[in-house]
Design a protein around this nucleic acid. Structure first.
Lengths: 144, 144
DNA sequence: ATGTTTTCATATTGACATGCTATGAAAAGG
DNA sequence: CCTTTTCATAGCATGTCAATATGAAAACAT
């Protein structure tokens, strides 16, 4: 029941871009330094975010990444689901619930459904804009 | 972000014992058949539950397992935490929060804290007694 | 053209976790 | 004793995690 580094890094990556792409595209090299994450790992993480249209890439010198939308249009859940796959706590809640033959006899699924709603409730209540605001409140500590 | 089979099976195991230990101890062999889980795997799962005093074991013929307490005294969270380890969504929420040097600069932790509370809110709101009641409401379908 | 800087695309790796199965010992009752 | 149960470890195949490695492709500057 843990969120992987990929998910956690993706969030920090998106936040880093959000806070730095105003004037020019953000290079992964800079994000890597600010966030203390390897460039190579960030490349891997961002590829999915590009493919799903969450960030736009610009190649070559002076290239980098920009958010495709406003920070307020990305919920935390959207970002996590993109890199992490589903955020559902048990597999039988996806696939149209068709894969467990114990459905209908299963009582624990009520717990899992409620758990899923609680998780989504939190992850979809906050957006990148909230994270940006919090970061700025804190004096924008880690941005050089 | 998935609950493992071990956690899910543990819950069904405890429910199975709760529903069947009134007259005599529950043999793992029977639970295995009712729940379609291998005896060997159940043995492994229950060992921790015995060690932490959640179930009492009786050896030999006519032996088996009994709950140590009333079903209403076990929350779902207790059972899951026993077999699954911590149910916290990110590691930096445990260990007295002492292991991440980015603490204090970290903004995402607010999300994780709220997520943790939401998860605990669900998992600690329900007890084995609730599961038993639901199972009985359903006509006790899968118990022979 | 050439070199540099960036992103993009795969493949590989080592460590660890998952989801079991296997073997056999120890206790208890008939 | 013999059977039935739990108890204790070990083993194993597969997969996931968390990266690293290699190199191509695009864009820009000179």
């Amino acid at each position: 029941m843990k969120i992987s580094t990929k998910g956690r890094y993706a969030l920090r990556l998106m936040l880093d871009i959000a806070m730095n792409d105003a004037t020019e595209p953000v290079r992964l090299r800079d994000t890597a330094e600010r966030q203390a994450i390897s460039v190579k790992y960030l490349e891997q993480i961002i590829s999915g975010l590009v493919r799903s249209g969450y960030v736009k890439s610009i190649r070559g010198p002076q290239g980098g990444y920009r958010l495709a939308k406003k920070p307020s249009e990305y919920t935390v859940g959207m970002i996590l689901r993109q890199v992490e796959g589903s955020m559902v706590p048990v597999a039988c809640l996806e696939n149209g619930e068709a894969d467990c033959e114990r459905q209908g006899q299963c009582v624990t699924i009520r717990i899992w459904k409620e758990l899923d709603e609680a998780i989504r409730g939190v992850l979809d209540r906050y957006t990148l804009a909230d994270l940006v605001a919090w970061q700025e409140e804190m004096g924008n500590a880690y941005v050089i």
